[in-house]
Amino acid sequence: MADFPDHSGALAALVGQSSGPIELSPDPVNTAMIRHWVEAMGDTNPVYTDHDAAVAAGYPGIVAPATMLQAWIMRGLKHTLDLEAARAAGNAPKGDANSQMMALFDEEGRTSVVATNCDQEYFRPLVLGDRLLVKSSIESISDPKQTGLGHGRFATSLMEFFAVPNDAVTKDLTNEQLAERGALVGTMRFRILKFRPGTGAVAPKAKPPRPRPAITQDNAFYFEGTLAGELRIQRCTDCGALRHPPLPACGKCASLNWDYVVSEGRGELLSMVVNHFPQVPAFDYPLPIGLIALDEGTRIVANLAGEPGDWTIGDRVVAEIVRFDDELALPVFHHETKEA
């Protein structure tokens, strides 16, 4: 495994720090966003959309769904795009504890992230006109742990939500002052796992076998050959022309008489494609496939070893007969090394 630094000390220093300044929700709790939310959820409870129904149910008016808590303070796409543009221009705003923590995780090789837990507390339902503020901090960072997904650390952020009436928001008051006047209406703890990709403890699922070729009288010699470790190429016994893939008749003289030669498996890469889609679980991706001009004089389509970027048209190649399972072996072409 690559050598990664251990930032335990620097990470411990971030625990308890606020992730950034207190933020004010862009909009007060409103019916339009509630309607979008309940429609996405398939929630038909009328207390979220119908004032009279909400009053009849005992609420002062329309209330917001409890799990919508965090949505009120999400800053949306524009904010994310602005941030990405700033980063691309080298003006990344830095310094808040959360981005410091993420950068330290990345340096430790923990570049993959997955959300693992969300805990919410609700102290009262949110009503139309509530304006939310959120105070975020890093509550805990775990020691490194081996998890099913990989070697990682768990980090829990704590968000405390305060509400003030929308008309209390004026330019004279800072977010901190507003939050002090507000009521704590809920909390949310969000736990993530940042882990090193490819270090999971869980063995990957067994791959299904490669698709079987349809074996015929004409091509059986070829697949029997690969199973015997040979790359057999069909030859017309009348005119001597080689042909591949196997066919009943010669394309040059139409003779039905043939045998085969055993190719050295050496040649030149004439062309290639990379199969991105559709992906079949039996194969590894990216999947480079080459058209090879064999030195003996015909062409063959076969898998290329390695990554697509390893290959250039005109490369000298040599076949390795790879046995995929008891029933199937096929040539895979590698770069020809100079030793031969």
Partner: peptide, 12 residues
């Protein structure tokens, strides 16, 4: 009931 829910925790 909406106002009755006090805490809600999940693991993904």
């Amino acid at each position: 009931g909406v106002g009755a829910l006090q805490t809600f925790s999940v693991r993904f």
